[in-house]
């Protein structure tokens, strides 16, 4: 059931990603100041934007989990944060490469996206240890949701604070989405955001489908082969009970 639409989504992602790469390499004009190196922008900034949106969305899912008590929402919130963390790492690495290429250092503190990205990463990196240290699955879901809501609200606030602290000293050297980007660049940028969003959504769907399948097969094994056939569930950071088995239903 979770696998439905995966093929269409995969194809759409493939098309959008290929289009992005082709446009970035062959079509987008070179930036007047930074030259070719500016093209990392089409990778780094969309990844960053998608990550930040995903964190906020995970907070909304977590809110739904608390309101409904449904394990399904916990699973969605967990998977979104999990994949957003991976995107976050991609954003940090590409940002570091960009910083090295244009300023000669692997890290610059006057680039607010990069800095707030690191802070947000440090916060969300504690999500899995927090889950891991709670054994009762029901309480794990509840506490993780509380964390996700707080952290989701933290993301924009943190970005604002970092931006305030940096923009004073150093004027921004390049335009972002809302700062006078030439039409062609803007187009490529938007295509790239769509592509990264599709990629994110695709991976989230894959992950949810895989987890649901694993639980279903596990339940099947238990029914057919008895309790001995399934390895006992160890402590896990991931949501451990299939939504079908959740007491909330």
């Amino acid at each position: 059931m979770h696998g439905k639409g995966l093929r269409a989504l995969t194809l759409a992602t493939l098309v959008a990603l290929s289009a992005t790469f082709a446009l970035v390499v062959f079509w987008a004009p070179n930036d007047a100041d930074q030259g070719f190196i500016q093209k990392i922008f089409y990778l780094h900034v969309p990844v960053a934007i998608i990550t930040l949106i995903a964190y906020v969305v995970a907070g909304i899912f977590a809110w739904r989990q608390l309101k409904t008590g449904s394990r399904e929402w916990d699973l969605r919130s967990y998977v979104v944060i999990h994949i957003a963390l991976i995107f976050n790492i991609v954003g940090l690495l590409t940002g570091a490469i960009w910083a090295k290429a244009s300023w000669g250092h692997w890290w610059v503190w006057d680039e607010p996206t990069l800095v707030s990205f690191l802070i947000v990463f440090l916060l969300y990196a504690t999500y899995q240890p927090l889950r891991f240290s709670i054994e009762d699955p029901e309480r794990q879901a509840r506490y993780a949701s509380v964390f996700a809501i707080i952290a989701g609200a933290f993301v924009p606030l943190n970005f604002m604070a970092v931006r305030m602290a940096t923009s004073l000293v150093h004027p921004r050297t390049f335009g972002t989405a809302n700062g006078g980007l030439p039409g062609e660049m803007m187009f490529v940028f938007l295509v790239s955001i769509v592509a990264m969003g599709l990629l994110f959504w695709l991976i989230v769907k894959y992950e949810i489908a895989q987890k649901t399948l694993t639980w279903q097969i596990r339940a099947l094994r238990r029914r057919l082969l008895g309790d001995d056939a399934v390895a006992p569930l160890g402590r896990s950071a991931a949501p451990t009970i299939a939504p079908q088995e959740a007491p909330a239903r």
Binding site: L123, P129, L130, S133, Y143, I150, F154, M160, M164, A165
Partner: peptide
């Protein structure tokens, strides 16, 4: 309250609290 009934309370508290307080510290 979040950390008190976890297995590793004294680890969870600082690693969660410190990043959360970064905006406040900046200001």
């Amino acid at each position: 309250a979040l950390a008190i009934r976890t297995r590793s309370r004294d680890l969870i508290v600082p690693i969660v609290t410190l990043p959360l307080l970064v905006p406040a510290l900046i200001a």
